[in-house]
Design a protein around this nucleic acid. Structure first.
Lengths: 207, 207
DNA sequence: CCAATTAGTTTCGACTCGAAACTATCAGGA
DNA sequence: TCCTGATAGTTTCGAGTCGAAACTAATTGG
């Protein structure tokens, strides 16, 4: 049964050749995620990086709870990390403790307060909701799943979707080519394929 | 045939309940993407935001090529956008032109130089490669696909994978619980589930 | 026991970003 | 017509990010 499954999926992926599209979608999701984290952190006076560092520390094992590891994980230099950790410590969200074997090493442990904050982070973000929506959607195409996630997130945040013109509810196909139902202006084929800030999805559509 | 398909997928998703995992994966992917864009932009003296703005302008239609739209798309305030666009214009990557109907509006058009730069961006990034790898992978589980993308990207960038301890090639299951093959120290169940900076995937494994 | 290495901190400068004040244009009503 | 309010964009300012480099302290290896 899994065999059949695999074949179907592979076929769809190859046919769609949607790598550049998935690329774009991931980038846009990436941006939105960052904004969510920023907005959340603001409520607690924390910067996005600080939230992410604290989150990492609640998820790593005892070989990986050092400033160096945080830097490797987040892709930041040790200097930058050092400052973020200082803030987290001052706010009572984590404690530092020197390793007994190697006194250069610092072990970082989130306090109860820190752990609770991270719990709230995950709950507070709309991403969880968006992911649930995407997972209950019927598509197996990566680009389509990502698109569902993105759209749900954008709705939740009250952001414009910026979809491709041809997928818009105002897009009208006339005898002499396409027309924008909002401006009543004719659209070239190229226009129709581009992103539009006024884009609105049709009521029923999913893709 | 699609009916069967949908049921299978739904079942797997529900069983796996992998929303939090997908959440994490998206965040880490998001970080990596940002670093790639940063590294790329550096070569041309551009900041990540500037690259993204320019990229948007090569993809949007004529109703959406204004500073305001760029801000909406990237989730930035108009002041911030204004500065980024000024830099792009100074570097000869885009041109500004006032709308003839509404003189408040500015239309932004990437120059040939700008368009070429964006082409190189997409080619230069490892993400395209990673996505291809993911799409040829056999999994249909969102978390698993994302994991493949992430791992491929991390390898391409020479970054540590930070996988869960129990999935590591040094993880050994002994009679009295698990042991880390690197440190020869015993691991609690909790340890085994956490992220480790020394993590290395087994040769053949995919998940 | 000294040199090289590694973990972490501090400092500095370039850059990001939001907020707010500002200019210019447009649209609508008395 | 003029005047008010709204909208597009710019400028300025301050808090914060981040990498680079210099620095301290501890460890490892001839």
């Amino acid at each position: 049964m899994n065999e059949v499954f695999v074949k179907l999926v592979s076929r769809r992926y190859n046919k769609a050749m949607n790598t550049p599209e998935a690329h774009d979608l991931l980038e846009r999701l990436s941006n939105l995620l960052r904004m969510e984290t920023r907005a959340f952190g603001l409520k607690y006076g924390l910067q996005p990086v600080q939230v992410e560092a604290l989150k990492y520390l609640t998820e790593c094992n005892r070989y990986s709870d050092t400033p160096q590891a945080v830097g490797d994980y987040l892709g930041l230099t040790k200097g930058t990390v050092s400052q973020s950790l200082k803030v987290l410590e001052q706010k009572g969200l984590l404690t530092k403790r020197h390793d007994k074997e190697d006194k250069r090493l610092l072990h970082l442990t989130p306090t109860l307060k820190g752990k609770n904050l991270i719990k709230k982070t995950t709950q507070g973000q709309h991403l969880a909701f968006a992911l649930t929506a995407a997972q209950s959607a019927s598509s197996t195409d990566l680009a389509q799943v990502l698109q569902t996630v993105l759209r749900t997130l954008q709705q939740a945040n009250g952001r414009k979707p910026f979809g491709a013109c041809h997928s818009c509810r105002f897009h009208e196909r006339g005898p002499q080519g396409s027309v924008c139902g909002l401006t009543q202006e004719p659209l070239s084929l190229e226009d129709s394929q581009r992103l539009c800030r006024e884009h609105e999805y049709p009521d029923e559509a999913q893709g």
